[in-house]
Design a protein around this nucleic acid. Structure first.
Lengths: 212, 212
DNA sequence: CTCTTTACATACATTCATGTATGGATAATG
DNA sequence: CATTATCCATACATGAATGTATGTAAAGAG
């Protein structure tokens, strides 16, 4: 039983993996550190050596995964000067595809959205999500505003309304897939919904019949 | 200290009220029965008299409130033979309005969606939600299918796609409001998003330009 | 007016999870 | 090679939550 520091890093990762699985299966609150340690093949001593407590373990697990919001922000950072609406749809569908093929990220997001109660202790975890949401809203806001300026939006939608509805749609689709992956495929049906919505958003009748 | 059976019913309701508040504030998992009893002004003895354990208390709390899905189903049961899309929008917006004005129901739904981890113990609670979802899907499915048959749907959407997107949008809007009620008003902005979406859904260019 | 049942409060036993303290074996360091 | 720091297992102490058992005062039934 000799542990080089590379070994230590590996057990740390094993603990994080075990936390992912255990949180996903039993929920965060009902997962004891002993459950996680056992799943990782170690004892609570190892867990307490690497992490101060369950909350810090949870945060480390969250930090190891990419939040989709951060992912989207990065994608939107270097986007060419194309049609803003198509850009938005492409980026979201691309993210859907990446998440659907990454089991680990899927588990983490399922934990964050379905297996975890956000109380005062979890304030840090929640704040990170909110921050990511906020900066994402800024990027999306700019794109929808650009679409509005160029007259690309259906008159039923102001830019703000379109952004809010789009955000709700994307979240709803994603959450539904997390809840029942067997009933809905994210990359086909999910992307189809997103693209169809973007299409009708840009299908501005005002361009054809100006003031009927 | 004399308790008539009407008094007993009242303390039972007080316990349920206290459970609502406590679950909402601290989350279900972190709420002990002693917390709830204290909040209700009784002891754990009273709680254990009326409810077998925390899960049963939770289920009783859930049963006392109307799930929005059941609410919607009831509304859709006796709807006239109008435009199906407008009917759908009206019913959803009406539900939004009712929930926004009912603090208790808002709390319960926030618990169900944000403050509760669905593990194996909570299978009953989850099943009830799923059942309600299912029968709601059937009703919505019929309406969207009718809209499709009458050529009222934008060609970008099949009936099934429209239904899925609409469901995701409504859920996303609702969830966003629950998470940040101060950033978004359900009855104004939420209804606006729903109505705008329904409007562009029905804005079928195929009727004007048949085969351009 | 008895007697039983209701509707709790109180007290107790037990389990479970946590946090910490300690020990030990090896790796890293000089 | 001696020393120290790392990495983890084991053991212990504590508190919190649960479930149950018991006590009890009043209500309801006859």
């Amino acid at each position: 039983m000799r542990k080089t520091r590379a070994d230590a890093e590996r057990t740390r990762d094993q603990i994080l993996d075990a936390a992912e699985m255990t949180f996903f299966e039993r929920g965060v609150a009902r997962s004891s550190l002993d459950d996680i340690a056992r799943a990782a093949g170690v004892t609570r001593g190892a867990v307490y050596w690497h992490f101060a407590n369950k909350v810090e373990l949870f945060l480390a697990m969250q930090d190891r995964a990419w939040l989709p919001q951060e992912d989207l922000c990065e994608q939107l950072a270097d986007t060419p000067e194309r049609d803003p609406l198509t850009t938005v749809a492409d980026v979201v569908c691309d993210m859907f595809r990446r998440i659907a093929t990454d089991e680990s990220q899927k588990r983490v997001l399922a934990i964050l959205l379905l297996r975890c109660e956000y109380t005062d202790e979890m304030a840090d975890a929640l704040r990170r999500r909110k921050d990511a949401d906020c900066s994402l809203d800024a990027r999306f806001g700019a794109l929808f505003a650009a679409a509005g300026d160029r007259g690309l939006l259906h008159p039923a939608f102001t830019p703000a309304l379109a952004q809010g509805a789009f955000r709700a749609l994307v979240f709803g689709v994603f959450r539904r897939w997390l809840e029942a992956p067997e009933e809905m495929d994210l990359t086909t049906q999910g992307c189809a919904m997103v693209r169809a919505f973007i299409q009708v958003l840009g299908d501005a009748p005002s361009l054809k019949a100006a003031s009927a």
